[in-house]
Design a protein around this nucleic acid. Structure first.
Lengths: 332, 332
DNA sequence: ATGAAAGCGCTAACAT
DNA sequence: ATGTTAGCGCTTTCAT
């Protein structure tokens, strides 16, 4: 059985006009006499003609699809960005090809190449950092690229992100207002985001208060709630009475471990976490949290991308979105 | 500035062969003399030639991309399926175009049509149910379709799902072993899944125990943890001492409300929830939960789709995946 | 084993 | 306002 496709040519023949005219009405070109537009539209309706986007893409060199490289759709942080991206994309009539990378450098490069082979009109890259190899690949292509939620200092690359430094600093300041010894829990790995943003924000807050920096108060976590026990050991050993945590899962692990040891939160120990996910409201006591506008990062990144794809002027290559702090029960 | 694309023709000229031969080496066709294959490969490398997937798609009528309609990427249930889909898809060299539908009928139809216009080789549809309109659209196209995580009775449509009935029945039985009055909390709306699967499984368990069905023990929720208080009122009024809940968020809302009222879980009240998400481990007491193999639903659905796309034989149009129950602290 | 040539379904000048 | 005609970059017979 062969799929008998109806082409623009069939419509043209049936309507007694040329392909060009059909193409014009399909694309809403104003240069068509209303009566012939009507006639063609009827034939299109009758034959149930659907334009073939692939042919259109080949002829016009525009596919109206953008590639999205995401570490893991299952991670709420990134899926929130993805949702923002898709909403704006469909608003501008684009579709997204989504590809999981697991933040694995090889996969990232491989996926990038198949996306480019598919002639996407633009590309959004997500991931906690970006590696020199991919950067090189990105610079090589003429396809517009925007990074979303990816910390990067290169000035020539468009990106939309959160001001981790400012947020961490503010949270730290808040805790320092009734604690002398405040700790910070960062993510895993040697990423720029940890030391150049989170730890730096933490340090700046200390400095302004004239408090010496103590390395033991900076703890790296693997980003899972199972780390709670271990981290609480370190926290308590270092004499901390408050902590800024960069992931909700970890914060809740810490909270649970604290409660099990009979430490009262917030009276004896204060916690500020960072994702404002449902976990913060489900916890008892509920967790005070920084809120990052995740959806907006995606939305703004996609909006930026549409501008570049349209050769519109882009004022600022680096967009930093503002955060908020939601005060709940884990702080005094 | 024009993007100077290198085509198969450039490679052919440089290598002193025909386009056909280049096409053959690109596609791994064995009918090429090793020496010419080598020569062509070198030119490809040197010119940094990348096949244009759009042109290839037009010529071959295969795009190696599949459309995925998802209610909301931000919903862990569906993003888990999506991850399974993408992993298997990329294993078979497919990419996925992901489109959020919000389970909105109009969006679903609209998205379906743009996906078909983009000539996807196959389609995976997700959503708690499927409506007659879309069903009609799906039947009209010759593009293979598989439903994932969507409850549907039509026998001619391929689908991969969970056996909600069996799972609910088993959970209910477990609770009935030390409770006389067991309730069940379903999802919102008049969906087939609620009454034909969850409630039915619940009823079957009751019947086998010879217990009369009491409508007050079936509670509909909006699927948010904020419902907890309201539901606990109903639960306690109806005299229930145990409940099977079909969403973790709701279960945790119930748990928190119970604790606030001084009801001991599990001594005075038992809970079994259904998604085995991180929430179940983060809660105190930790929640006993049914586990559905979400990733596998996606993976199996995509695998099924590859078979259909390859015109391979499909034994069983409806695949039901097995569940497990993880016993934790919210049951005796 | 290799080449020639005809499309795939559409867009985009260019003509009229 | 409408039609003609080249392509877009590749696959795929069909020859050789």
């Amino acid at each position: 059985m062969e799929k008998q496709t109806i082409t623009i040519y069939d419509v043209a023949r049936e309507a007694g006009v040329s392909m060009a005219t059909v193409s014009r009405v399909v694309n809403g070109n104003p240069n068509v006499k209303p009566s012939t537009r009507k006639k063609v539209s009827e034939v299109i309706e009758r034959l149930d003609y659907r334009p073939n986007a692939v042919a259109r893409g080949l002829a016009s060199k525009k596919t109206t699809t953008v590639g999205v490289i995401i570490p893991n759709v299952t991670d709420l942080f990134y899926s929130s960005l993805a949702r923002g991206i898709d909403d704006i994309a469909s608003m501008y009539k684009y579709n997204i090809i989504l590809a999981n990378s697991d933040e694995n450098r090889e996969k990232e490069v491989q996926v990038l190449n198949t996306l480019l082979a598919k002639q996407v009109d633009g590309l959004i890259f997500m991931g906690s950092t970006i590696d020199e190899t991919i950067l090189k690949e990105l610079r090589r292509t003429t396809t517009p690229v925007v990074l979303a939620g990816t910390v990067i200092s290169e000035p020539d690359i468009l990106s939309v992100n959160i001001d981790y430094l400012a947020a961490t600093k503010e949270a730290t300041e808040l805790l320092l207002s009734h604690n002398r010894t405040v700790a910070v829990v960062t993510g895993p790995g040697e990423y720029e985001i940890n030391k150049d943003h989170i730890v730096k924000g933490y340090k700046e807050a200390l400095e302004e208060k004239g408090i010496d920096f103590n390395e033991d108060l900076v703890i790296q976590s693997e980003y899972t709630f199972k780390d709670g026990d271990k981290i609480v050991d370190l926290l308590l050993d270092a004499g901390a009475t408050a902590v800024v945590v960069s992931k909700d899962e970890v914060a809740i692990g810490i909270l649970n471990a604290l409660i099990e040891r009979g430490v009262n939160v917030p009276d004896d120990f204060e916690i500020i976490t960072s994702n404002n996910s449902m976990l913060t409201q489900v916890a008892r006591p509920q967790l005070t949290s920084i809120q990052f506008p995740l959806y907006d990062i995606g939305a703004v990144a996609m909006r930026l991308l549409t501008k570049v794809m349209n050769n519109e002027e882009v004022e600022e290559p680096k967009v930093l979105l503002p955060h908020k702090i939601f005060t709940r029960q884990s702080t005094k």
